[in-house]
């Protein structure tokens, strides 16, 4: 009886809190934007998490001030779709770290990260979260911590493990989009196939020196007829190739989530920054 008696006032209290919170957010937003200081005040006053305040603000069509410079590209409704989206990033090295940062800054609400490796000195040329201090530390945890400092409204789950598509796919089955940031053609092939079979969005990217390759929602049999590594083993990957490739992948993710623009669903994009060649090839025939 005591429990039952307590239940009613608690429900009423939550509703009251919610209205108070809504009134607070409306009152303290500026031209439809919520400044960080107000966000933090709301967290303290209403004993709520960063993410909860962001979610409630978006319900009221109030956007965090951090997104102000997104506005001509991404309106409030789109920002809400991004907040409700879940993206899995397989690999947190060059491509994965850069894609993760871009998706965090643009406001994708839920990220699941995988990487088994530690930062090493030879990562410093291109992996955006590597630095002299964190050599020897687990990439996936370093990236998670850094992302949370950039945007605390993102829910981030980090797995310190080598992703095996056959065994681990259940860990990402709830994702809207999977980003391939792996460095093994064989695993890329398997991941692409698993995503296709599960009807989950799949954004492929690969780099070797100043070359890149990209396609979306396709399997990769025509890209990798044989297993084994590619030219990257000989030529490595410079910083600008990595961030260029990650930008294309991040844009594909956002277009898939928002269902806007043209994605690489029927094409393979081959890029060569040495020759400034950007070639669209058929992927399926």
């Amino acid at each position: 009886m005591a429990e039952k008696g307590n239940a009613k006032p608690r429900t009423l209290k939550v509703k009251t809190m919610h209205k108070e919170r809504a009134d607070f957010l409306k009152k303290h937003s500026i031209d439809g934007f919520l400044p960080l200081t107000t966000h933090k005040t709301a967290m303290r006053v209403f004993n709520a998490s960063f993410r909860e305040i962001e979610r409630d603000a978006l319900e009221l069509k109030i956007v965090s001030l951090r997104y102000k410079r997104n506005q001509s590209t991404i309106n409030v409704e789109s920002q809400k779709k991004l907040f409700n989206a879940h993206v899995a990033i397989i690999g947190c090295g060059g491509l994965g770290g850069n894609v993760a940062e871009m998706l965090t800054r643009i406001g994708v609400g839920k990220l699941t990260l995988f990487d088994f490796d530690l930062f090493e000195e030879h990562n410093l040329n291109r992996q955006n979260f590597s630095n002299i201090e964190n050599i020897g530390k687990e990439k996936v945890y370093v990236v998670k911590d850094a992302l949370e400092k950039i945007n605390s409204s993102i829910e981030i789950t980090a797995f310190l493990k080598r992703f095996h598509p056959a065994m681990d796919f259940h860990l990402i089955s709830g994702a809207d989009v999977v980003v391939d940031a792996l460095d093994s053609p064989q695993t890329k092939l398997q991941l692409a196939k698993a995503c296709k079979e599960s009807n989950i969005g799949f954004v492929y990217g690969a780099i070797a020196g100043m070359n890149g390759q990209f396609t979306t929602n396709n399997t990769l049999e025509n890209v990798y007829q044989k297993g084994g590594p590619g030219a990257e083993v000989s030529v490595g990957n410079p910083s600008f190739s990595v961030s260029f490739a990650a930008s294309i992948q991040a844009a594909e993710v956002v277009k898939l989530i928002l269902n806007i623009g043209n994605t690489l669903e029927n094409e393979l994009l081959f890029t060569d920054l040495m020759s400034n060649e950007f070639i669209l090839l058929p992927i399926k025939h």
Binding site: G91, G93, G94, L95, G96, D180, A181, L182, D183, S184, P185, K188, G205, A206, I207, A208, N211, G212, Q213, N222, V223, Y224, Q225, G228, P229, G230, A231, E232, N237, L268, F270, L281, P282, H285
Partner: peptide, 30 residues
């Protein structure tokens, strides 16, 4: 990637007069 006239092929493909063979190095890094 290996293509003839914009279509994916394998190495055993027999070529015909006028074919355009395009050869791309494998790209697999991440």
């Amino acid at each position: 990637i290996l293509m003839v006239n914009g279509r994916h092929i394998d190495e055993k493909h027999i070529l015909k007069d006028g074919d355009v063979l395009a050869i791309f190095p494998k790209v697999g890094g991440g």
